[in-house]
Design a protein around this nucleic acid. Structure first.
Length: 280
DNA sequence: CTAGGATCCTGTCAGC
DNA sequence: TGCTGACAGGATCCTA
């Protein structure tokens, strides 16, 4: 379930495969997964790929943009002479495609781009380039941690009265974090996920911004959840979370920092992992 | 304003 | 084996 690092990894990975390629045909296997008329993009050339928070923007040469949001289980998989897969890590990364989770197929002049999405929450939306900024999701999107000043973040938190976990998940407060990187950020800063935002000090707010950058930078360096770290060298399946997650998914394990126990609770409606000893 | 829940979907896993 | 409920890396909408 892709967060900013996964989306950024996909963006970088797809650049070399789909930029300057032409869209020869579009096959829609699930109506709700492609918003807009496919006829508008057939024949267009892909000029570039940018990203805003967790949304990918594929710019075409006809004034249109494909806005892709993977939500919980979306994936983009390019299949040509080489294979590149990113997004929600599962067997689709290596399966024959299309399969039953394939929602849209973009046939390019040099391969195929598959939009897969088990739960159908994600989508590809065809919009005018001029209208990108007016898309509700984009319009309300906050700054990413790299653009965010600790002071500014602190002031935003002061105005809210939610748990810090909810605030970090809120794309209108800070952009890019999802359930995993939120837990990892709070673990790094030793802050309890249930702490009210108005109880967060300026120093802590600054630490959170820095930690969020570090956590996501590290994940981007490792390549997010891509085919590369999903399939290990020996052919078995790996979990790239093992590479860096200190708290997420480690219920019952020992905290590597203090030896305390990693607990799983529910905060802001989401499964939340934290160390009961050092995140008081 | 907030918290909390439901919703959109499919799939997997634990427990009986 | 089959059923059931819980849960899942997101975001939005509704209600109290």
């Amino acid at each position: 379930m892709p967060e900013l690092p996964e989306v950024e990894t996909i963006r970088r990975g797809l650049l070399k495969y789909i930029v300057h390629r032409k869209i020869d045909d579009v096959e829609v296997l699930c109506e709700k997964s492609l918003v807009g008329e496919k006829e508008k993009i057939v024949g267009a050339e892909i000029l570039g790929i940018t990203r805003k928070g967790k949304a990918l923007l594929v710019e075409l040469d006809n004034g249109l943009v494909l806005m892709v949001h993977l939500r919980m289980t979306g994936q983009l998989i390019f299949l040509g002479k080489e294979r590149f897969a990113g997004g929600h890590p599962n067997e689709n990364f290596v399966d024959e495609l299309p399969n039953k989770q394939t929602r849209v197929v973009f046939r390019l002049d040099d391969g195929k781009l598959f939009f897969n999405d088990q739960r159908k929450f994600g989508f590809v939306k065809i919009i005018e380039k001029d209208e990108v900024e007016n898309e509700p999701f984009i319009k309300k999107l906050a700054k990413e941690p790299w653009e965010m000043d600790g002071q500014e973040f602190f002031e935003t938190l002061q105005k809210k009265k939610v748990t810090i976990k909810a605030a970090l998940l809120d794309q209108n407060v800070i952009a890019g974090l999802g359930n995993i990187y939120t837990d990892e950020t709070l673990y790094m800063t030793k802050i309890n996920p249930k702490t009210r935002t108005d109880k967060i000090s300026l120093a802590q707010a600054k630490e959170i911004v820095v930690a969020a950058r570090e956590v996501m930078n590290k994940s981007i360096e490792l390549g997010g959840s891509t085919i590369k770290n999903y399939v290990k060298a020996d052919g078995t399946r790996g979990n790239y979370l093992d590479l860096f997650a200190k708290a997420y998914g480690r219920e019952g394990e020992k905290c590597e920092r203090c030896g305390g126990k990693i607990k799983k609770i529910r905060v802001a409606g989401r499964g939340t992992y934290y160390c009961e000893e050092c995140q008081k």
